[in-house]
Design a protein around this nucleic acid. Structure first.
Length: 462
RNA sequence: GGCGGCGUGGCCGAGCGGUUAGGCAGGGGCCUGCAAAGCCCUCCACUCCGGUUCGAAUCCGGACGCCGCCUCCA
């Protein structure tokens, strides 16, 4: 079984499943009030890779990731645009799924919306009220953090030191600056839902609790998200669930940030690149490869240079796919071990990749092993040892596919005119008419083709 | 102020005491009519100062620099 760093226990430990063979995982999704940015791209890719890898290994993965469709920012944006929250949320949710499809992130098993779970949130808050853990203030219901013995466990510090570090005192009335809003009382013109403790709308943290427990059940296996959600968001989710008497996630995993020139990319700093923009101008696979080449807990530097670097590396993989006529895997389908070819070299490669990934999802080492295998397969083929090279190339394809990276063996549709030039060039080459052959190659290049000679003649691709 | 992390070759990025990951870029060679692709070889490292050790990028101490969380954030 894979070993992962558990943010709660601060150690790498085997993923301890509630039920053998089945993985229940929850990934905190986006609040839909803007285009997805590179940070969103990273977390979705990282957890998509884990999901695909577990599926590859034969686990049945129940992957839940929410859409937060009600929140202050959505309300503010709707007001600014003179439209409704529903319109804003659905518009950006569409953008979200478009980007996800493009980047090859498989759709979650379930993608619940916060607004579909309001009654459950109300019920949870009622449980907390009954236990005297929630208390009312003028503007809503608050959670009393002092009532949870190990509050601060995820943050890695005791409650007292967190309180001492509180930088801003937003609500003087709160018993502790760390106490957070479970429910916000209705304000004129804002969306509102009925509740026994006063109509209003939910605070942020409660939704993930009821959606994860509702779809995965108590004591589910793994809760994932960006490092910036660890505290306070995840701490507050955990606190609520446990305080209400519901065992929560068995394991917590957090991915590192996307950095721009050494600083965390974030909306508040304004230094973000939208994922939508990136996907319009580059091969979506380049970002996945970039993410795979660094460890999921490390920060990654994203810049035009690092993206181009990944695009070039991708070229090498695509060359392999063309040379060996590899099938295009991944995409919407999940690759499984049944896709692996038989044979010793394929088995050895799969085994070393597996060992690396099982050690806290060490994708950089796995990718390095795969690239080494690429050299090996090409070398064998150069020596004419196709029987050995072919299964190795197929194993590389399968294992990249298991990580969601599709190798592209198609050079593009060849139109009739280009095909005719290719035919003429092969004739010229057969006649050793090099000047004509070079002239025809130039015209192909002008048409946008990359021209390569092979044993079977001129091969062109885009 | 509290807590946590980081400083690796031209760039990205692994590494967890002994083996100069891997990719991209650069140089040389092989292959090719010439190219391209591919293969082989190669240049270029571990912020600094002490210490532990037969041996340290890796462990310990210190210095400097950087980053994150403690506030909405993936």
């Amino acid at each position: 079984m894979i070993r992962l760093f558990d943010s709660l226990k601060s150690e790498v430990r085997p993923l301890d499943l509630r039920e053998p063979g089945k993985v229940s995982m929850y990934v905190c999704g986006p609040t839909v009030y803007g285009l997805p940015h590179m940070g969103h791209g990273r977390f979705t890719l990282v957890w998509d890779v884990l999901r695909r890898w577990l599926t590859f290994q034969g686990y049945e993965v129940n992957f839940v990731s929410n859409i937060t469709d009600i929140d202050d920012k959505i309300i503010n944006l709707a007001a600014a645009q003179g439209t409704s929250e529903v319109v804003v949320a659905s518009q950006y949710e569409q953008e979200w799924w478009k980007a996800m499809a493009k980047i090859g992130v498989a759709h979650p098993t379930s993608s619940p919306h916060a607004t579909e779970y309001v009654p459950q949130m109300v019920a949870l808050i009622e449980e907390l009220v009954a236990k005297d853990i929630a208390y009312p203030l003028s503007d809503g219901m608050y959670f009393d953090t002092s009532r949870v013995a190990d509050y601060g466990a995820l943050a890695g510090q005791p409650l007292d030191s967190l309180r001492a570090g509180a930088r801003v005192e937003t609500m003087e009335e709160k018993r502790s600056p760390l106490d957070f809003a479970l429910w916000k009382k209705a304000k004129p013109g804002e969306p509102t839902w009925p509740a026994s403790f006063g109509d209003g709308r939910p605070g942020w943290h409660t939704e993930c609790v009821v959606m994860s427990l509702g779809l995965l059940g108590e004591d589910f296996d793994l809760h994932c998200g960006g490092l910036d959600l660890k505290f306070p968001h995840h701490e507050n989710e955990r606190a609520q669930s446990i305080a209400a008497g519901h065992p929560f996630a068995r394991h917590w995993a957090h991915n590192g940030f996307v950095m721009v020139e050494g600083e965390k990319m974030s909306k508040s700093l304004g230094n973000f690149t939208s994922l939508t923009d990136l996907l319009e101008r580059t091969d979506a696979r380049a970002y996945r490869l970039l993410v795979l080449r660094s460890h999921y807990r490390s920060p990654i530097e994203v810049s035009p240079a690092t993206i181009e670097d990944a695009e070039r590396a991708l070229e090498r993989l695509d060359s392999l796919a063309r040379r060996f006529g590899l099938d295009q895997l991944a995409g919407d389908t999940f690759v499984t071990t049944s896709h692996l070819p038989t044979g010793a070299s394929a088995g050895e490669l799969a085994q070393s990749v597996t060992e690396f990934l099982e050690d806290d999802l060490n994708t950089p080492l796995a990718v390095a092993a795969l690239f080494e295998a690429v050299s090996q397969a090409n070398g064998l083929a150069d020596e004419g040892r196709a029987v050995e090279a072919q299964p190795l190339a197929e194993a590389i394809n399968t294992l990249f596919g298991a990580l969601g990276l599709t190798l592209n063996s198609h050079g593009g549709e060849i139109d009739a005119e280009s095909a005719e030039i290719v035919r003429l060039r092969d004739e010229a080459r057969a006649a050793k008419n090099w000047a004509e052959a070079d002239r025809l190659r130039d015209s192909l290049v002008k048409l946008g083709w990359i021209v390569e000679d092979s044993s079977s003649g001129t091969v062109i691709r885009r």
